[in-house]
Nucleic acid binder design. Structure first.
Lengths: 257, 257
DNA sequence: CGATGGCTTGAGAGGCTTCAATGCCGGTGG
DNA sequence: CCACCGGCATTGAAGCCTCTCAAGCCATCG
């Protein structure tokens, strides 16, 4: 089945890298109802503690999930790029435990939980696929814990850039490339548990080692192999096509309809 | 329905705090097949990269999920106590992206993925409940990112102790109490992104402020209110009983069977 | 052209680490 | 019953990585 031109396409493409779905199931996902919304930079579109009734798919721009300490210390716990369902988990735990904020001008597609529930009740394979998406998000966060907890600032920054590069390119890496990444140094700092001052210095360190450049709104990878080596970056946790797809399916009784 | 005496009871109790399940569904979970296994302290029972075929329920003891940097730097990304299904997510992503290690002598119940898949294919509500468990685990990790990224060592340690206290007591808190927690200071350090030397010093700081004591294998909370205030601990991310339980259920067509 | 937001750079302070030695305690074997 | 042993906890001193504070710069925008 060919994706057409819905905002849901990018999401479906990502899902299909990890879960095997029939044409009917794919069509069902693509026909999910949604309402587009433009969010200006620095605005929260999900607030902490709120009762959420929609899941948010990032269509363009960049969004961050924020936790915070008492004294205004903000920490980004996840970054979401176009094609990510930033909020899929809220379908299953509607009370938001953290805030979602647009880091730059962002458009989102809001999908009613109701529709998601109808979908997964009807298609167990889709339920499993969505469950899997949430598990992959958790694996990414697990890697962030390691990154923040146990790596030096320079390696930390390099690792984040590798992850974002890998996610933007869906794993199709080459030696040297550029991608747009509209996060400020302050956003990077909040993602890394550092200050923006120190992020700035580390950017210069990486640049002077010839590994990468960070400019306003974009990142240039100069040498992917050296960089990912330096960053201790191993993309396995992003669970892409290499891993077996739903290996049990064959042995399941076909219950759906 | 009354829990009887299976290792699965504790797990079911936790699931029921977050998901509404019928008697039949509860019975189905309790009749999941499993094989008990004793793991000695410091031994990995799931290795990184391994293809996993079972999910592990912690029955007694304490287990840690480990990520690691290049130079032997270990970072614990999750702690699992009795009643936790440490590995539920592996049912949906069988390639382990991190290792599971027994921190002390631990007994686990290994549940075949096959059985889990059969269960969730038959009972959509259970699929949703298991999905929700994974989402809660992710919420805990999200809080760890904030903790490690943005809080000082003393607050960080206090926060972890609050979390573990809350989880051991399933949220039934009192002013002053003791609970056994068989982690070493080294384990705490690996959970907090600190060194064991510094954890030791912070323990003494907390003790001299009269907030808590940490002894070999146990933690004593001296003043829960003051401690959780100091730790910036807000248990919302752990509990979902306040929030509506699977609010969509009523409106779903009853498809199962 | 002033205002704004982000980036850059410097100097000093401090929190945490590193290294290293000592102390404690439970277990084990003679 | 005691001596030894190994793992963990404790303590000190020195150093470094990162933070804080503060100023200057540069582009963009009204």
């Amino acid at each position: 089945m060919m994706p057409n031109d819905t905002p849901l396409d990018a999401f479906l493409v990502k899902v299909l890298r990890r879960s095997l779905l029939t044409d009917e199931e794919q069509r069902a996902i693509l026909s999910l109802p949604f309402r587009m919304e433009k969010i200006e930079a620095q605005r929260d579109f999900v607030r902490m503690g709120e009762q959420v009734t929609h899941s948010c798919l990032i269509v363009t721009g960049l969004a961050g999930r924020f936790g915070q300490g008492r004294e205004g210390n903000r920490q980004i716990t996840a970054l979401h790029i176009p094609g990510d369902m930033a909020d899929l988990h809220s379908a299953v735990t509607p009370q938001a435990t953290s805030a979602l904020q647009a880091l730059t001008a962002t458009t989102i597609a809001k999908i009613p939980h109701q529709a998601i529930h109808n979908l997964v009740a009807r298609y167990p394979d889709i339920a499993e696929a969505f469950w899997r998406e949430c598990v992959v998000d958790a694996a990414v966060m697990s890697e962030w814990v390691v990154n923040i907890g146990r790596r030096s600032a320079a390696v930390r920054l390099a690792h984040l850039c590798c992850e974002m590069a890998f996610r933007y390119r869906l794993g199709e890496m080459v030696e040297h490339f550029v991608f747009t990444f509209p996060a400020t140094q302050h956003h990077l700092a909040d993602s890394l548990g550092l200050t923006s001052v120190h992020v700035n210095r580390m950017i210069r360190v990486l640049e002077s080692s010839g590994l990468m450049k960070v400019r306003r709104g974009m990142i240039e990878i100069l040498d992917w192999d050296d960089l990912s080596e330096f960053a201790e970056f191993d993309p396995t946790y992003l669970v892409f096509e290499d891993s077996p797809r739903t290996p049990m399916r064959a042995s399941l009784p076909a219950l759906q309809n």
